[in-house]
Design a protein around this nucleic acid. Sequence first.
RNA 1: UGGAUGCUAGCUCAAUUGGAAGAGCGCCUGCCUCUCAAGCAGGAGGUUGUGAGUUCAAGUCUCAUGCAUCCAACCA
Length: 502
Amino acid sequence: MSKPVRVRFAPSPTGPLHIGGVRTALFNYLFAKKHNGTFILRIEDTDQNRYVEGAEDYIVESLNWCNIPFDEGPGKNEKFGPYRQSERKHLYKQYADELIASGNAYYAFDTAEALDAERKQHEANKETFIYNWHNRLNLNNSLSLSKEETQAKLDNGDDYVIRFKSPQDETLHLKDLIRGAIKIDTNILDDKVLFKSDGMPTYHLANIVDDHLMEISHVIRGEEWLPSLALHMQLYTAFGWDAPEFAHLPLILKPTGKGKLSKRDGDKLGFPVFPLEYTSPDGDISKGYKEEGYFADAVVNFLSFLGWNPGTEQELFNLDELISAFDLDRVNKAGARFDPDKIKWFNHHYMQEQNNDDLATTFQDNHSELNDIDVNYIAMCVGLVKERATFVSDFWGLTKFFFIAPENYDEKASKKAFKDETKDLMTKLISIVSNISDFDVETLQKEIKGWITGNDIGFGKVMMPLRLALVGALQGPDVFDIMYMIGKNETIKRLEKVISVL
RNA sequence: UGGAUGCUAGCUCAAUUGGAAGAGCGCCUGCCUCUCAAGCAGGAGGUUGUGAGUUCAAGUCUCAUGCAUCCAACCA
């Protein structure tokens, strides 16, 4: 039917990729895969002043960690390359010149200082300075100067920028896939700089040229670009090109209060706002979801619900399910509030699907106390407690009694569990345990429960102090599982110890 | 200040072309149990930001207003 779907994620390498950027990348990826299309990574590094070393690698690593790799991009399947705008520098000037030739753009020689002064003066008069039709003839450009003067300046090598000549008294009818029809009066638009004096294009020019050259079919980007849509559509018209479809995603808002989610919110409220840990050139470290123990699938699932929902009650989606369920029609318009508790909830669910051996390996790597312990044993412990864990880092607190005997007993629990007859009961229990030769869960259960019911003792009187002896607190999985795991000798040792403090 | 976009439960979001306001998370209660979670079941929670208008009928359309965000760079 229509053109093949080609979408791009076009971040600027100015630092670590924000979690909102990951969401934008994800939606592009889902849309591409849903329509058997191509997901492209393009690096928008036209601002050399803001370039940060390592940021591009960080972006690529983040996408890979999330399992949403790009199909085309720097160093990969370069059919439409290069994919770094700095390496496409030679392409842009001719297009700017083309716009000048067609009367859609003009040279401007105003210095940054002159424009700054204008802005300040307007501000003092409580006005807004806009460089456009109403004042461009009073400023220093090829429209206000004569042809000869302009040429003389160019020949002289004066610094210049190329500005778009925004039309007067027109109404633009724009279409956004998520927001519908938008009307814009061109009189309020300004003459945006398309080409900078350093020989680089601005975002606006590079973006349109590259999207055209790379045959992008759908532009899916953040809402912060919505005000630029009018300019971009006019550029397509000026070039005589077919424009792609546009979809502007809602912003991601702070968990508390109002406002856009920022790096500071993460620092303040203690959750990451970046996919991977990031160390800035200054040495500042920002937390990452990966390093904090989140599973990539959980992060992706959570992110997919920021501004989108499937219209059903299903919340748990793997990547394939997301691809088939995703639809731009179901992306909503309002800003999405970031809820750190919800992402933990997702992580807990994904924890249950993890392989115990893999979890055990990670767990062991993170705890030197476990160095000499058989990984299979650790995996069994993990299997017993993971239903109550959200992160691998929860494991130690949940399993330490499998590896080391409790040193003391929780005070409140002791009051509840230790009674006058406890000493006698525990002593008797030791002899029962000692006599069990098949030391497995079933036998333990049968023998001990049989003893309790047979003598009408009451479960709490035995089980609570027993649990306290083994764990040190009234917590943890099934008591018989614990006994089986630590073994007969250790069980008896712990019972003897608890008797000694009674 | 100007323009754009948005506003439904505490939070994330639902609600064919206008046609009885719903789910999940969180919270509370119960069940389960040797404990804490998890799990299961139930419950509370809403004048759809506010005010008008059009209509037999408005969360949905129109206008006004409030609040929030984005843009208003030779940043992206």
